[in-house]
Simulated assay, not measured.
Amino acid sequence: MQRTRDDLEKKLHDSNTTPMFFPLEFLKAITCDFSTESVLGEGGFGVVYKGVLRSGKVIAVKKLFEIRLKEDTFQNEVRYLMGIKHQKIVQFLGYCAESSWEAIEQPSGSGKFIFGELPKRLLCFEYVCNKSLDNHISDESSGLEWNMRYEIIKGICNGLHFLHEECHMVHLDLKPENILMDSTMIPKIADFGLSRIFGEQQTRIVTDNRAGTCGYMAPEYLIRGVVSNKADIFSLGVILIEIITGDRDYPYFHHDRSQRDATTFQQFTEKVR
Score class of each variant (00 low, 15 high):
residue 93 L to E: 04
residue 8 L to M: 04
residue 268 F to R: 12
residue 24 L to Q: 12
residue 113 F to K: 00
residue 61 V to W: 00
residue 118 L to G: 00
residue 263 T to Y: 11
residue 182 D to N: 10
residue 242 E to M: 08
residue 116 G to R: 01
residue 270 E to D: 11
residue 151 E to G: 02
residue 234 F to R: 03
residue 137 I to S: 01
residue 103 A to G: 02
residue 31 T to G: 03
residue 37 E to S: 14
residue 237 G to Y: 14
residue 78 V to C: 06
residue 15 S to W: 06
residue 114 I to N: 01
residue 69 L to T: 08
residue 17 T to V: 05
residue 34 F to H: 11
residue 115 F to D: 03
residue 28 K to R: 13
residue 209 N to S: 15
residue 16 N to A: 11
residue 70 K to V: 07
residue 186 I to T: 06
residue 53 L to F: 11
residue 98 E to S: 09
residue 151 E to N: 12
residue 97 A to I: 03
residue 262 A to P: 10
residue 131 K to H: 11
residue 55 S to G: 13
residue 187 P to Q: 02
residue 252 Y to V: 15
residue 75 Q to M: 11
residue 54 R to M: 13
residue 134 D to K: 08
residue 170 V to F: 02
residue 92 F to G: 00
residue 140 E to L: 15
residue 75 Q to E: 12
residue 14 D to F: 02
residue 76 N to I: 06
residue 60 A to D: 11
residue 173 D to I: 02
residue 217 M to F: 01
residue 197 I to F: 15
residue 2 Q to F: 09
residue 64 L to E: 12
residue 263 T to P: 08
residue 198 F to M: 12
residue 168 H to G: 05
residue 90 V to T: 03
residue 59 I to K: 00
residue 135 N to A: 10
residue 208 D to T: 13
residue 205 I to Y: 09
residue 203 T to D: 15
residue 91 Q to F: 13
residue 48 V to R: 09
residue 216 Y to V: 03
residue 124 C to V: 11
residue 3 R to C: 07
residue 62 K to I: 06
residue 200 E to D: 14
residue 253 F to M: 13
residue 162 F to K: 06
residue 41 G to Q: 10
residue 205 I to M: 11
residue 4 T to C: 13
residue 148 M to A: 10
residue 166 E to C: 03
residue 43 G to V: 11
residue 179 I to Q: 00
residue 268 F to G: 08
residue 232 D to G: 02
residue 102 E to H: 06
residue 260 R to P: 08
residue 226 V to K: 04
residue 14 D to V: 05
residue 214 C to V: 14
residue 157 C to R: 07
residue 159 G to E: 02
residue 185 M to E: 05
residue 188 K to F: 00
residue 26 F to S: 06
residue 166 E to D: 13
residue 73 T to R: 10
residue 20 M to N: 07
residue 246 G to V: 05
residue 182 D to P: 12
residue 170 V to S: 11
residue 120 K to W: 07
residue 14 D to M: 02
residue 88 K to E: 07
residue 232 D to T: 02
residue 23 P to W: 07
residue 155 G to Q: 03
residue 225 G to N: 09
residue 144 L to D: 03
residue 181 M to S: 06
residue 102 E to Y: 00
residue 195 S to W: 08
residue 59 I to F: 01
residue 162 F to N: 03
residue 272 V to K: 07
residue 257 R to Y: 08
residue 87 Q to T: 12
residue 82 M to F: 12
residue 132 S to H: 07
residue 61 V to Y: 01
residue 249 D to W: 09
residue 40 L to Y: 12
residue 154 K to T: 09
residue 140 E to T: 15
residue 211 A to C: 15
residue 27 L to M: 05
residue 184 T to F: 13
residue 257 R to M: 10
residue 227 V to R: 01
residue 253 F to E: 05
residue 249 D to A: 15
residue 114 I to Y: 00
residue 47 V to M: 05
residue 138 S to C: 13
